[in-house]
Design a protein around this nucleic acid. Structure first.
Lengths: 349, 349
DNA sequence: TTGTAGGCGTTATCAA
DNA sequence: TTGATAACGCCTACAA
């Protein structure tokens, strides 16, 4: 009986002694691994209950080589969209019996890489890359993700990357943007400005979708209407100013399609300042269908990229992987255009 | 040498063998505990580097009884205010060498209690209760927090509770509300409506502050002007409707003081629908000074409760506790009224 | 300066 | 159905 401390916290030896059985039996009761007589089981359970014993998580982790923890890597969990994702994921993971280790990396490649390996060193059972800011355009920059996947399953929420032990769950925002452009055009909008601020995996796809929209109309996108705000974290006032300056410099447009609702809010602010009526003079469409689409005046039409469903499926997939079930490497959902006051498609051709 | 597996991951024995030293030496190098000759140290470090060895976190946790992890308990990390807090806390904790275990409880007492003990069973080095939704008015409901504090330091961000191993970091929102009422009154507002949706610790304090504001003016708060929205998660449209209904029922007010920016946004929506000009006919003040205060049209005056500073101080305090330094049980910051377009104090008496 | 050996609290493998 | 005992991988007296 190698056990001789009188610490505050009791261990399996204490319980075994109090219950008059061996530690093996206590362990078996704890993990209800069959072979225990109902009588001993009850006795042990009572002792455990009476003394408020909880098995030591570290010791268990050492033995089983897992503490049922998943790493959530996220560029900025204060961003409302990512925050919602993190919250949903955490809930689903907990329902599946896993804790969430949160890690906000910021947008610099170096820290993303550093924090990912930090998570791995904690032996997490899986990693979820929340948002598409982790996948780089030149594949050389994605080595750190592939390397991580050698040690633990990696799920990409909103992004996609092909490789062993990599799984992607995303929404077809490219198609959504394409459709939005076409609908705006059909309802008489001649010049749709595309407003974006990120060239992440998702950002690139949306931009492509915008261009495809025009391509399918057999038109080339009007000159100068792809407008990038050069900041991940920005203020609506910046957006308003950017559009205002462009307008004063002579740029004209009758619709704004934005890669994110906050950008669209900025567009609405611009319209007000410039004296343009929404939607009569300027149609506005945002993306994410976040609560702020409704905070805006007027309320914003927005592309719903089905975050809830994505998160649920993401965790479901991870659980399947961890349980050894086979599961799809890539799952794609459709987006949904939620119409509100900032657009008017009634005269759609 | 009790070591005989050919697994994928090497351990300290492998390294010691490859470097031709004992595991003790390797361990010493790893924890740079002085007594190692520079030469052996370099040799060991090179072997570690070459083989990409990382010490097993579980084993280390078992021995040291810590994995350098802090639990973040939060009612709903999708709430923008709480999300910002979680993000800030995580960053500060990481800077201090600690990981963050996130746990969203929702608003039910039962789950809060359940998840808190779940965190404790993971042997976190500390727990931060993010937001004031954890402290209940009747102290009987706070037993679970006090019990937790017996096992690990508990920090309350935005709330306060007195007891051993409990630390509070908060902002004097009560004073802020009191001052806001007085300033509104002095600038000619006769009937300040107080709009709130939570009776959390913070919620109660703000309400008290509102009443005190009137008390200091030697006036009793106008009848029926304390308006509670009965929902933690709400839509701005609900808020607009609530005010609209009240107005139609004859309730009159010339200012809205809200316990949260989102409620204030709802008030602005109401004003627009009712044809009231902001701030001429209706002044609006929100609380939290969150980004949405600027999304709103017009931009909202808001009480800044200094979340950044609170988070920093909260983690600083925890670090001090963990390092055995003495530190204050309660830290209180002042709030700041950030004036924007929804108020006009120019004619303040 | 370095090495040996025991302990941390489980789980799991064998016997009994 | 139970019990003894060896991992699991690290840290750290204590000894050399």
């Amino acid at each position: 009986m190698p056990h001789g401390k009188g610490a505050d916290c009791l261990n399996i030896y204490d319980i075994s002694q109090l219950a008059g059985v061996s530690i093996a039996t206590v362990s078996r009761v704890l993990n209800d691994s069959a072979r225990v007589s109902e009588k001993t089981k009850q006795k042990v359970l009572r002792v455990i209950e009476e003394n408020g014993y909880t098995p030591n998580a570290f010791a268990r982790g050492l033995g089983l080589n897992t503490m049922h923890t998943v790493g959530l890597l996220c560029a900025d969990s204060a961003d409302p969209y990512l925050a919602k994702a993190v919250c949903d994921l955490e809930r689903e993971l907990r329902a599946g019996g896993y804790d969430s280790l949160l890690c906000c990396t910021g947008y610099a490649h170096e820290t993303k890489e550093k924090y990912l390996s930090l998570l791995l060193s904690k032996h997490v059972d899986g990693v979820i890359l929340v948002g598409s800011h982790f996948v780089e355009q030149e594949d050389a920059g994605n080595g750190y993700i592939r390397r991580a996947a050698k040690e633990t399953p990696v799920l990409l929420l909103g992004g996609a990357l092909d490789g062993p032990n990599l799984y992607a769950v995303q929404c077809d925002e490219r198609a959504a943007m394409r459709d939005a452009v076409q609908r705006l055009a059909r309802s008489g909008r001649e010049r749709v400005l595309y407003l974006y601020n990120s060239m992440s995996y998702s950002g690139r796809n949306k931009l492509i979708g915008y261009r495809e929209g025009y391509a399918l109309l057999n038109r080339t996108p009007p000159e100068g209407l792809e407008l990038m705000l050069d900041a991940y974290q920005f203020d609506v006032v910046q957006v308003r100013q950017l559009l205002y300056d462009k307008w004063r410099a002579g740029l004209r447009f009758d619709a704004v399609l934005a890669s994110e609702d906050r950008l669209a809010v900025g567009a609405a602010k611009f319209a007000k300042r410039q004296g343009l009526r929404i939607p009569q003079d300027l149609a506005v469409i945002g993306c994410n269908n976040s609560p702020i689409a409704r905070y805006c005046e007027p309320e914003l039409t927005s592309i719903d990229n089905q975050l809830d469903a994505l998160c649920r499926r993401c965790v479901d997939t991870l659980m399947d992987v961890l349980h050894g079930k086979s599961c799809p490497k890539k799952t794609v959902f459709d987006a949904l255009l939620v119409q509100r006051e900032s657009t008017d498609f009634s005269c759609e051709g």
